[in-house]
């Protein structure tokens, strides 16, 4: 695709702008900012990726993965400010997910150890892990609040923090993984996944594109469950003190 053709695709930005103006939706400013940000961010990523791919140097690959994890942590931590040390818990979770998935992919030679594979797959895995973390943290903090009486009941009957938090924790893990599992049930029926569509448009063999997409689906399933479970089990101990008391915000 040439820059001229890309310029023509801005028609798809003009349509909502005109509609917004006509219907007084007030979306013009946000739409323009989003478009400009998308152009700058993606073009920058495009040039950086081209440089990294050409360089074929593991240090640059490592640096890219660190940047991806850093951005994901920065974004997700805002949802878990009530959990002590959430930044480190997210870092540990994302690094573990990255090591686990790339370890299996590269260790079993499922994908080649090149920047062209490692970086996009890391981006998809960590991106998904970030969304899962946000969903999990949102749900977990509200579950703790709404089930405080039940949690304290179990503590008051001689239960441990792990027993007391078990139901809110399991319920949050289940709730945060549901969107991933549900979307995978209808994949290919309702919509063609973005990565697969992109490969097909770029001229790849559709069967090859499907096989890669399946690989990503399997990866995302692991990512979803491991992220929620790991973040949950790393987070819950900080909600209690050594006297097995549920900490209130003013006592943390």
């Amino acid at each position: 695709m040439s820059f001229l053709l890309l310029g023509l695709s801005l028609i798809f930005v003009l349509i909502p702008l005109v509609l917004s103006k006509t219907l007084n939706l007030g979306l013009e400013k946000d739409a323009v900012v989003a478009t400009i940000r998308a152009i700058i961010q993606l073009l920058a990523v495009g040039y950086i990726l081209q440089f990294v791919f050409d360089a074929e140097n593991f240090f640059y690959i490592f640096l890219m993965v660190v940047l991806i994890i850093g951005a994901a942590v920065q974004n997700a931590r805002k949802k878990g400010v009530s959990i002590k040390g959430i930044t480190w818990k997210l870092i540990v979770t994302f690094v573990f997910i990255e090591v686990l998935t790339q370890g299996i992919l590269l260790g079993l030679n499922i994908t080649p150890a090149t920047a062209q594979y490692i970086i996009p797959i890391s981006g998809m895995v960590i991106g998904n892990s970030m969304v899962l973390s946000i969903l999990f943290l949102n749900r977990f903090t509200s579950e703790i609040e709404s089930r405080e009486a039940e949690t304290e009941l179990i503590l008051s009957l001689g239960g441990t923090p792990k027993q007391a938090i078990h139901r809110p924790l399991i319920s949050s893990i289940q709730a945060s993984t549901i969107p991933t599992i549900e979307s995978q049930k209808t994949i290919g029926l309702v919509q063609l996944p973005g990565m697969m569509s992109g490969q097909i448009i770029a001229g790849a063999d559709p069967l090859q594109a499907v096989m890669f997409q399946l690989l990503i689906i399997f990866l995302l399933l692991t990512t979803a469950v491991v992220t929620s479970a790991m973040l949950g089990f790393l987070s819950y101990p900080t909600l209690f003190n050594e006297r097995m008391q549920l900490l209130k915000p003013d006592k943390q």
Binding site: A149, L157, G158, M244
Partner: peptide, 12 residues
């Protein structure tokens, strides 16, 4: 803590 809570029961 567990021994204390079993010695001192509470009904809310």
């Amino acid at each position: 803590p567990v021994a204390l809570r079993r010695k001192v029961g509470i009904a809310l």
